[in-house]
Amino acid sequence: MAFKVLKPGMLTLLQDLGRHGYQHLGVTSGGPMDEVAFRWGNALLDNPDNSPQLEITFGMLSLEATQPTSIAIVGADLEATINGEAAMPWQTYEIKAGDVIHFQQSKFGLRAYLAVKGGFLAAPVLGSVATVMRESLGGFDGKGSKVQKGDLLPFHATSNHTPRHLPRLAIPNYEQVEIDVVTGYQYARFSGLDRARFFNSDYTLSQNCDRMGYRLEGQAVGQDQPGIISEGIAYGAIQIPSDGNPIVLLKDRQTIGGYPKIGCVTSISGGLLAQKKPGDKIGFRFMTIDQAERERHLQMSRINQWR
């Protein structure tokens, strides 16, 4: 009772909501780069929030079902097909034994999620199956391996299927270029000119973008800032290295760092940023902590109410 991997794609990883409570030991959280899409994938199938899914980056994944099940595809539009028929994201599909699911290249966004009824089956490591390749943790083998050709991805077979799709108004706007930022205690160290440049400039995503972080290119800020004593790093932290080009740290970030931080991307905007590709342009928008908390509560409430 599994999907057989015909083509592994450029980067396909098993993810749940992450490995929490171990950062003091140097273990990062991992988890889905686009948490909102991930949560909607499980909601569409009535799965528990933490049920493991496949995170498919760039596409080119092909799977063959060995048993019937129900799936949901959410996140980026990677031009998915089921037996050659188009399968749009943000809805569920009935899968029968022998069906082939194929993800092509990115049409819109960067990362899609494939959820299966009941979640994919894997043994947790430190309480999570989230794949962090750098730390050799999680995944189907427990060693942080990405999905490979010939792998069998197990799930519990089911013939029960409920057709569902997400209302258009609930679908995230991946065209949004404004990324919301909450400033932190080191913000005061930056000059007024640097602050103005940061919030009024466009930045381009460089080729150095991965699950660890996104390096940006554009108006340099804070080049006169001295280093700091290494300290813990939160999800979304925006480090300013000596060249002045911001680095946004994401799910597979290192646990400590010694660059000053001008602020932190909100959890909701972090998911939008994770759908951007190298060469895309973004801008930063100031948000208070209260506004960020309300935004997250609103998004989680939408999902819970829809359930």
Rank of each mutant, 00 (worst) to 15 (best):
D194R: 09
R195E: 09
R195C: 10
R197E: 02
R197S: 11
R197V: 13
R197C: 06
F199R: 01
F199S: 02
F199E: 02
F199W: 03
F199Q: 04
F199C: 03
F199T: 02
S201H: 02
S201N: 07
S201A: 15
S201W: 01
D202F: 07
Y203G: 04
T204V: 07
S206M: 03
N208W: 05
D210T: 11
D210G: 11
D210N: 15
D210W: 09
M212E: 12
M212N: 11
M212Y: 11
M212F: 14
G213L: 12
G213M: 13
Y214F: 13
R215T: 01
L216Y: 00
E217I: 05
E217H: 10
G218F: 00
Q219F: 00
Q219K: 00
Q219V: 00
V221S: 04
G222I: 01
G222Y: 03
G222A: 12
G222R: 03
G222N: 05
G222E: 04
Q223F: 00
Q223M: 05
D224V: 09
D224N: 14
G227H: 07
I229N: 07
E231Y: 11
G232Q: 11
I233V: 15
I233F: 04
A234K: 10
A234M: 15
Y235L: 15
G236T: 14
A237L: 13
A237V: 15
I238H: 02
I238T: 08
I238L: 09
Q239P: 03
I240W: 00
I240R: 00
P241K: 03
S242E: 02
S242R: 02
G244R: 00
G244D: 01
N245P: 00
N245G: 00
I247K: 04
L250K: 11
L250F: 12
K251R: 15
K251P: 06
D252S: 09
R253Q: 10
R253C: 09
R253P: 05
R253D: 07
R253S: 11
Q254K: 10
Q254I: 15
T255H: 03
I256R: 07
G257V: 13
G257I: 13
G258A: 02
Y259S: 02
Y259E: 01
Y259K: 02
P260N: 12
P260Y: 08
P260H: 10
P260F: 09
I262E: 05
G263A: 06
G263S: 06
V265S: 14
V265Q: 09
S267K: 15
S267W: 06
G270C: 07
G270I: 08
L273E: 07
L273M: 12
A274G: 05
A274R: 06
Q275E: 11
Q275S: 11
Q275C: 12
Q275L: 14
